[in-house]
Design a protein around this nucleic acid. Sequence first.
DNA 1: TAATTGCATCGTACGGCGTACGAGTCAACC
DNA 2: GGTTGACTCGTACGCCGTACGATGCAATTA
Lengths: 232, 232
Amino acid sequence: MAAKRNGAESKGSGRRGASPRSGQEPRSEPPLSLERIVATAVDLLDAEGVDGLKMRRLADRLGSGAMSLYWHVGNKEEVFDLALDSVLEYRGPSDIVESRDWRGEIVHMLEDWRASMLRHPWTASLLPRRALGPNILSRLELLSKTLSRAGVVDADLNVAIWSLWNFVIGATTTRANFDLSDDDRAAAQQRLTGLSQHYPTIERSRLLLDNDWDGAFSKGLDFLLDGLAPRQ
Amino acid sequence: MAAKRNGAESKGSGRRGASPRSGQEPRSEPPLSLERIVATAVDLLDAEGVDGLKMRRLADRLGSGAMSLYWHVGNKEEVFDLALDSVLEYRGPSDIVESRDWRGEIVHMLEDWRASMLRHPWTASLLPRRALGPNILSRLELLSKTLSRAGVVDADLNVAIWSLWNFVIGATTTRANFDLSDDDRAAAQQRLTGLSQHYPTIERSRLLLDNDWDGAFSKGLDFLLDGLAPRQ
DNA sequence: TAATTGCATCGTACGGCGTACGAGTCAACC
DNA sequence: GGTTGACTCGTACGCCGTACGATGCAATTA
């Protein structure tokens, strides 16, 4: 099976540029490519959300026929995977710098991670159900290396990475969920307030209603890091 | 709008029992009800996963026509919401007990939460994109109350709840994701190992490959609680 | 008893989806 | 000139969620 062009990362190999169109119709689109498909998918996801991504619609934006996409990707799920991973690339201080401030590095990377996801809120609902792409794994690798350099012994490394990862995933998914999935911000708030008699403590702490998500995130991260490797 | 029967929780109000069938065909099914629909949806989700839940299939299992469901629920999304919340009911020591061991209580509830979700792995991909139902809110309320009783001041309560919530959500979604979404356990493992040259530290810590998820969870939770409220 | 009402069920049909299939185009190579 | 292989796309199929209206039946009313 697998006729098409899966397996390798081959882009355009042979001919280039020559427009496949004979006349000069108003078809100025560049040729289809995996890069364009993924980038356009991200745009579409940003604009319309997870449910807004349809193969036909994506093809429209690309100025191509729907079935042309299937030369470049195996199926729609693959589009999701690629879009997700592409958005999570980390452009930060790579391992070149042997900074002493490991805690700062970790905080920076995790906050960048969270920021990337919040910039594309659909990632929150996708990440939990898709496989880990190379960019995600790279982040985990960098996290591991930093923690290791910070003195976390190998036996604890696993737990430490997991805890931080879990924290970021949880924080961003919940946050994005609240910005989006609830039909309306006001409606959700009213619903919560209406029910607040049943949930007095939640109400008192103004959970979900206060808007200092950023502060809550970094403060919680601090607590977690304190637990993982107490400041000496 | 809204003719049907939304808004209230009315179950059967008037007549009961009399079979709507005239003869005695092999149709022994009890009448449709919201409870049966939700319970059957949970079964179907357990068996077939998120993508396996189709309104027609659900109706089949209920011995009814597909459109009959729409008398009881507004749409498919509502089925998801109800199934999700129904599975997260907490049957644990409610606030009656004024135990001194707040830390034990919290650990117990969070581990129960995680266990509930892992028993129904589809919850992991649903929770991040659905609204919070009453059972979920009840858990949060209980968590708040316990933390509050443990001496966490109101100013920190928000952050504390969030951190714990995030940790649980993250841990369960990732875990469930690994059990399921990757086509095959073996395939995933091989993929990771094949790529391990790019991710040496991950490989060394045997992240994702070791199977002591339970241990990692409770250990991470311990770290987090240490940070939130250091043992005195 | 007869007519009416309202809860509940369900058959049919519609529009939209992902994508299988196979035909088409064109550059490169023999 | 013929062949090949990379790439595009029109058509069609099966499945989905669900709008709509017909139908049945119990309770209510006259």
